[in-house]
Write a protein that binds this DNA or RNA. Structure first.
Length: 675
DNA sequence: ACTAATAACATTTTT
DNA sequence: TGTTATTAGT
């Protein structure tokens, strides 16, 4: 019955079989940590645990989906339907929708993305006539976000000393004020931001009305992946959830914690055994991914960090090639080195384009490789620059849908009220916002009854507002009887959004139209899948919105037979693996980043980042750095990253120094080419 | 209310 | 350098 357990090695098996109490699985890179969670869930199911009593939390939707598929392969698809597998945010948003009225929300609240919340903060700062140089929206946003991730509500903000970079008292008072208004405005708009999903879940579970108790019995087994990237709020929520049964299993690798800037706190995994003194510790140390040299080199690098759980990661695969180190004089040369290596390595048919990844510290570095690869006609794909759902045309249409499902949505109103151009400008919108503020209500209320709220507008503006209002109202009416797909099509047709792009067919506009069609397609497939599952005919817009608001670019699946080079940031590469990895731009002030070298902790995180990059590779790692780089409009002299010296020399080989042996031809326009 | 021009700004970002 | 946000002018 549990034959599948034999596929695990001894340590993995022990970790899977222990389910009596809390356990911590420290899993080195490539040691099969996701496999442990997958098999543990399958094992529990095979032993009669009901799927609805298992909660498995991941950090990406993709990871959750893959896990579900792999569990289904073992136990069958029908059983996995009732499993609670998902990201923290998606699982908690489901719970919050169910319990919405307990915390003063409607169950169809919208989720503000980073852009929405930044816009709202910006308008609040403007409303309060604060100096927006002292109160930069992004700065205030990060403070509010940090507060929320530390479970500090707007009401408690002033009484808490929680940030190291605590600002002067006077500034704090205003930030507290902005925070209060922000929370209030979100609530009026029936909206939550990403951090709210955690904060409100915590507040919900803290209520003494038996809500947590219900979920104690619901989630008797709790499994968490990537535990090293958990923040304080997530940690506390889990603590509450696991209070009764204490059957919690967390899996992670302290050496791969690279999201501290988003509130991830390494101490959560380091101190796990203090929170759960009776917990069992399992260490997975055999790496099944990389060659011995890669594993050893990565070990030698990470051993320079102080904060870590001791472990010895090893590989039993072949010894493999040494890590190669290339340098160049100019940044575009780096592109040529990489493309030349790729061409060389593909020559004998040993590798294809899909076997390569180029990893860098910052998105801005992508251009060099894009240009170099395009020059020689090698197919590539850049990951994670602009997400599909971040595109203007897509956000506009989604904003209409948001408005239909929840007309109080302030950010959606601001986005679509003059899009396409209805000649309702900033002045009118600002009047509406001011009126909404002074009456403590939402924008929609004002737009529906401008005269009741004594809005000072002339008759033509009033007419335009009325027209807009009626349009939305008609949409809402139709949405109550039609499916999400039909409503989406109707929005595009009746607002005339697509016509603007149809007028002049610039390449940008053509791709915009394509994107919109893509969105309609996804609406269609979504409606089909949902109605097959639930046997209902009409799939509501709010269902679709709930699904996509937590989706990211990372979640778009690859087609198997696509053959191209993958280019992305190291952050985006986490959890993936490639045969050959180029880690580029290994220079001081770029990697480690100039802004992340103030404290030893920051340097250690950057070092972990390189550790992650190197351990993505199965067969070859190639490191590059350049001596001059064109950045922010000027040339910078760069020196090699300190991390290069952190890798034990015996695993490194610097073949011929490419640039020293090459010649340059200098053109008038200061562009250099190698020949 | 729209546009064109200028100023400001530039990490990483699983949700 | 390239993008994005604000501002001044129409």
């Amino acid at each position: 019955m549990t034959d599948f357990i034999q596929q695990l090695n001894e340590k993995q098996r022990k970790a899977v079989l222990y389910n009596e109490g809390p356990s911590l699985v420290i899993a080195g890179a490539g040691s099969g940590k996701t496999k442990v969670i997958t098999f543990k869930v399958a094992f529990l199911l095979k032993n009669g645990v009901s799927p609805s009593n298992i909660l498995a939390l991941t950090f990406t939707n993709k990871a959750a989906r893959e896990m579900k598929v792999r569990i289904a392969e073992i136990v069958g698809e029908d059983i996995t339907q009732n499993l609670w597998i998902g990201t923290f945010h998606s699982i908690f948003s489901k719970i919050l929708r169910k319990e919405a009225e307990k915390i003063g929300f409607c169950s169809d609240f919208v989720i503000y993305d980073a852009q929405d919340s930044k816009n709202l903060i910006k308008t609040i700062i403007k409303d309060k006539i604060l100096d927006n140089n002292l109160y930069k929206p992004s700065f205030v946003q990060s403070i509010i976000s940090k507060a929320k991730n530390n479970l500090i509500t707007s009401k408690k903000y002033l009484n808490n000393i929680f940030l190291q970079e605590r600002v002067a008292q006077m500034k704090d008072i205003y930030i507290s004020d902005i925070y209060l208004t922000y929370s209030n405005r979100c609530k009026i708009s029936n909206a939550m931001d990403f951090d709210d999903l955690l904060l409100y879940t915590y507040l919900l579970f803290s209520k003494k009305n038996g809500v947590v108790q219900k979920y104690w019995d619901q989630f008797q087994f709790i499994l968490i992946d990537e535990y090293q990237d958990i923040n304080y709020a997530q940690h506390e929520i889990i603590k509450k959830l696991a209070e009764k049964y204490r059957r919690i299993c967390v899996v992670g690798d302290d050496a791969q914690s690279i999201y501290s800037f988003r509130g991830a706190n390494l101490s959560n995994i380091l101190n796990f055994r203090e929170v759960y003194p009776d917990s069992k510790l399992f260490k997975l140390e055999q790496n099944y991914r990389s060659t011995q040299i890669i594993v050893n080199a990565a070990n030698s690098l990470i051993s320079k960090n102080k904060e870590q759980i001791p472990k010895v990661v090893f590989s039993k695969k072949i010894i493999g090639e040494k890590i190669k180190l290339f340098s160049a004089y100019f940044d575009y040369e780096e592109g040529n080195i990489v493309t030349n290596r790729i061409v060389e390595m593909c020559l004998f048919g040993k590798y294809e384009y899909r076997d390569f990844a180029i990893l860098y510290r910052t998105n801005a570095q992508s251009r060099i490789f894009e240009e170099a690869l395009r020059k020689v006609n090698i197919p590539y794909r850049i990951y994670g620059s602009i997400s599909f759902y971040q595109r203007k045309e897509i956000k506009d249409i989604i904003a209409y849908m948001r408005l239909i499902s929840n007309p109080t949505d302030e950010e959606a109103i601001k986005r679509v009220i003059n899009c396409p151009n209805r000649r309702i400008g900033n002045i009118t919108v600002n009047k509406i916002i001011t009126a909404a503020n002074s009456h403590n209500t939402n924008l929609w209320e004002i737009i529906s009854n401008p005269f009741f709220f004594n809005l000072k507008i002339n008759s033509t503006t009033a007419f335009k507002l009325k027209k807009f209002c009626l349009l939305i109202k008609r949409f809402i009416e139709k949405a109550s009887v039609q499916s999400a797909y039909d409503v989406g099509k109707m929005v595009i047709e009746e607002t005339g959004l697509i016509n603007e792009f149809d007028k002049d067919k610039t390449p940008e506009n053509v791709s915009r139209i394509q994107n919109i069609k893509e969105l309609i397609n996804s609406l269609h497939t979504f409606s089909q899948i949902k109605s097959e599952n639930k046997m209902i005919s009409g799939v509501k817009i709010s269902d679709f919105l709930a699904e996509i608001s937590l989706l990211t670019d990372q979640d778009i699946d690859e087609k198997e037979n696509d053959n191209f080079i993958k280019i992305m940031t190291i952050h985006a590469s986490k959890g993936l693996e490639f045969k050959n990895v180029f880690v580029v731009g290994l220079e001081e002030n770029l990697f480690p980043s100039e802004l992340s070298k103030k404290t030893p902790q920051e340097i250690e995180e950057e070092r972990r980042l390189l550790y992650v990059a190197i351990t993505r590779a199965r067969e070859n790692v190639i490191l590059t750095y350049v001596k001059t780089r064109f950045q922010n409009g000027q040339f910078h002299c760069m020196s090699p990253s300190r991390f290069i010296k952190d890798i034990d020399e015996q695993y490194l080989s610097s073949p011929l120094n490419f640039s020293c042996n090459s010649r340059f031809k200098i053109f008038k326009n200061k562009k250099y080419t190698i020949y």
